[in-house]
């Protein structure tokens, strides 16, 4: 396959970047998108230039590192897929592909396609945990949890924190991420003690980090590689309303 890539190049956080075009020949349809970028980088290095910086870790679709905007869609055109699991067979010979970093003030670009997502870590640190007694490890099934509740919590827990929801949202809102974390813990018995404080603290950190608000476009739901539903945003809203009038 022959491709023309338009990639955002930015030296560091302090400088401004621009789109740069690269021609690619002999791209195998069996390559993953990241492997295609690896091949591009080898060519760029051979030319003595700086390779395109992008994040990656597991390359198995579970770590959430490899976020990038491909042709205007977070993680590219395939549904429920991270960039590393996207394969070049999804594209056609002669295609032009635009590759950009996640765009959000809360995700500043560090270099090329790499953004700083530590704002997500700060949201988690402000309430994405449960307090447990120290001592021996509790029995796994000591607290019975119904199958439906377990499934509901697990579907929220599937969030890998990749930031595609923020990237795809026209408002750069982090509500799908934050609500998945809040709902995952808040729907289980172990998460009840901190439930109301959690929603207040995590929403407040989310707002302070400079993410936008939800206007219910549901682009996040479409972009999420783990298929997390906006139903969790509704639960976060319910908890927030309750917490506003109950937390002391």
């Amino acid at each position: 396959m022959k491709l023309k890539l338009h990639i955002w190049r930015q030296k560091n956080a302090a400088t401004s970047g621009k789109m740069t075009s690269y021609e690619m020949d002999n791209v195998s349809p069996d390559m993953s998108f990241l492997e295609m970028l690896d091949v591009l980088n080898e060519k760029i290095i051979e030319r003595g230039e700086e390779p395109v910086a992008f994040e990656h870790d597991c390359r198995e679709g579970i770590c959430g590192s490899c976020g990038m905007m491909i042709n205007g869609m977070a993680h590219g055109p395939e549904k429920l897929t991270t960039t590393c699991q996207l394969h070049m067979r999804k594209f056609n010979d002669g295609d032009e592909i635009t590759i950009e970093p996640w765009r959000a003030e809360a995700f500043p670009v560090i270099k090329d396609l790499v953004v700083d997502r530590s704002s997500f870590d700060r949201i988690i640190a402000s309430g994405g945990y449960v307090n447990v007694n120290t001592g021996g490890v509790p029995d796994a099934n000591a607290i019975p949890i119904g199958k439906k509740v377990a499934d509901y919590a697990f579907n929220a827990a599937a969030c890998i924190g990749c930031g595609a929801c923020v990237a795809a949202c026209p408002n750069a809102s982090a509500m799908l991420f934050t609500s998945a974390k809040i709902s995952h813990l808040g729907s289980l018995p172990q998460g009840q003690v901190e439930r109301m404080d959690r929603v207040i603290n995590m929403v407040s950190t989310m707002d302070n980090e400079g993410f936008g608000g939800c206007t219910n476009h549901l682009e996040c739901e479409a972009a999420c590689p783990k298929g997390i539903s906006a139903e969790y945003i509704a639960q976060m809203n319910r908890d927030m309303m309750k917490a506003t009038f109950t937390v002391r």
Partner: peptide, 16 residues
């Protein structure tokens, strides 16, 4: 919301 994304994308494809 406008200040949450000051640099816009060169290409965006709305889905939902």
């Amino acid at each position: 919301n406008a200040s949450a994304r000051k640099v816009s994308y060169a290409n965006t494809q709305p889905v939902n």
